[in-house]
């Protein structure tokens, strides 16, 4: 008890208390914030009719916003008639759908527990059956090794970076919308995003950017994802903002500390 009382007046005590309080706040927040496992559902095993099974999944996990027949509900979710299997694959495999909470845009997150290749295929088959639309690309269409990286870079700079930033680090759009970072996007998802134009993104269909060009761009983006930073820490690869921050926080602080250190011993007036 005495030790605690003595420690109370320690110069670092207030920081310790502050840290503790912040920690507790963080823990409380993570407990309170909603998670996305509510959509968990058991999948019937065995051979089933994809469309029928997809409809069942849809009614369970998607219909509250998109309507029982995917016709859309005003101010909640758009109609999914004609968006195609590719859109389903993109949204569900990247965890964007089902959404956890309404907002300007659905963030990428860990997919729901019931999501796997099989269920996506069933859900996709159901949506495809409603009005057609783009389908997922083949393995070969998105193989980065078959694309021309430099050519893809030129297309990437001309079409993508004004929203996604020059390395696909993401960027802000108006009214809380944003272009997400491409650091985790898989080649298939990149292709599907271009083909279907999810959320705030425009559609880059095959007449605007041919499938070959799409593969070049995928090669460039995958190259960026894998490329190390030869100059040291990448600092988020967002350009001068983090560079300036590092300069002031580390550079100037170190030099101020050095200045304090070498002038610590002072001469007195005689």
């Amino acid at each position: 008890m005495n030790r605690i009382t003595a420690g109370r007046r320690h110069p670092l005590a207030r920081y310790a208390v502050l840290l503790l309080a912040l920690g507790l706040l963080g823990v409380a927040y993570t407990l309170v914030v909603p998670t996305d496992d509510r959509a968990a559902a058991s999948i019937a095993s065995g051979k089933v009719d994809n469309v029928a099974e997809g409809k069942r999944l849809f009614e369970q996990s998607c219909s509250s916003c998109h309507g029982l027949n995917a016709e859309g509900i005003p101010d909640r979710g758009p109609s999914l008639v004609g968006v195609g299997w590719a859109a389903v694959d993109f949204q569900v495999s990247s965890g964007r759908m089902p959404m956890t909470q309404p907002g300007a845009q659905a963030p990428r997150k860990k997919p729901a527990d019931w999501v796997n290749d099989e269920t996506i295929k069933q859900l996709g088959a159901y949506i495809q059956s409603l009005g057609g639309g783009p389908v997922p690309p083949t393995e070969e269409q998105v193989d980065p090794a078959k694309g021309n990286r430099a050519k893809g870079g030129e297309l990437f700079r001309a079409n993508c970076i004004q929203c996604h930033n020059f390395v696909g680090a993401g960027g802000a759009l108006t009214q809380g919308k944003y272009a997400p970072e491409l650091t985790e996007a898989t080649p298939k998802q990149i292709y599907e995003a271009m083909a279907t134009g999810p959320q705030a993104m425009p559609v880059f269909n095959d007449s605007v950017i041919t499938p070959d060009q799409k593969r070049d761009m995928i090669a460039y983006i995958v190259g960026l994802q894998q490329e190390p930073n030869p100059g040291g820490a990448g600092l988020g690869r967002i350009g001068p903002v983090t560079e300036g921050l590092l300069l002031w926080v580390v550079g100037i602080s170190l030099l101020v500390l050095a200045a304090i250190w070498i002038t610590a011993k002072k001469r007195q007036a005689q």
Binding site: R157, I161, N165, F166, A169, P240, G244
Partner: peptide, 11 residues
């Protein structure tokens, strides 16, 4: 013709 999101000058 090209411009990137997050284009900033030095600080």
């Amino acid at each position: 013709a090209d411009i990137s999101a997050g284009s900033q000058p030095d600080y």
